[in-house]
Amino acid sequence: MSSTIIQVENVSMMFNKSKEHIDNLKEYFIKLVKHQLYFEEFWALKNISFNVDKGEAIGIIGLNGSGKSTLLKIIAQVMKPTIGKVNVYGSIAPLIELGAGFDMNLSARENIFLNGTVLGYSRKQMKSYFENILDFSELWDFVDVPIKNFSSGMIARLGFAIATVSMPDILIVDEILSVGDYKFQEKCNKRMQQIIENGATIILVSHSIEQIRELCKRAIWLEKGCMVMDGLADVVCDKYMNS
C-alpha cells in the first residue's frame, strides 16, 4: 500500500539578492529618486519535483547553501514557492529548530501549552500529552522554572518532546539531532524509529551521511538549487561522498 503524501511539483524559489536590503521608507524614496532600485535575482531552488509516499523516510543531502532548508520550509508551508506547487496530505511536525516557539520568560509548563498550540494542537490535547512530555524530557524538577534559566540541552529536550509527542503523519527534521548529550540522542533516535514504525513519513536533512544511511531508504541530493540525484540512500550517499 503506497499512497502519495507529499507532492512537490516544479518548485522554484527566488530571492532578492541585492546588496543592501532596503527596509525603510526613507531609503526607499532616496533610491527611487536616484533610480537605484535594482533587484538581483537569486534562485535558491530550480525546478524541483518529487513525490513522497506514505511511510517513506527520505534524506536530503547537499553542501551548505544548496537549498535544503529552503526546500524544507516550503514543504512545511512556512514559505510559498515562487513557481510551482506543493501538496501535503497529513499533519506535519516540523523539527526545523527545536523550541522555536518558546518564550524565554515563561515556565516549562506554560511553554508546553504555548508551543503545543503553535504546532496546531488544542489545549485539551496538550493536557493529555503533558505528563508524557515531561517524562520524556525528564524535566519534572523544573516544570515551573522560566526556561531562560534552562541549559540549551534542556530546551532542546523539551522542544523535541513536544514536537514528537503525538504521532505525526510527517516529521520534518533539520539537523537537530546533533544537540544534547549522547544519551538524549539515543533516546531521540529511538523515538524516531518508533515514529517510523508507526507508519509516519520522515524528511531528514543532515550533514551526517551515517545518519541518513541509518534512518532513510531514499535520498535526494541537491546542489546549488538543482536536484542532482534521487534514489536509494546508499547509492546516492556513495555518489555524494565520491564527488
Partner: peptide
Amino acid sequence: FKYKDLLMELVSRDIKIRYR
C-alpha cells in the same frame, strides 16, 4: 477554529509577562 487555542495562549502570555 483550529488555532483558537493558540490565540488564547498568545493573549495569556502577553498578560502573564506584563504582570509577572
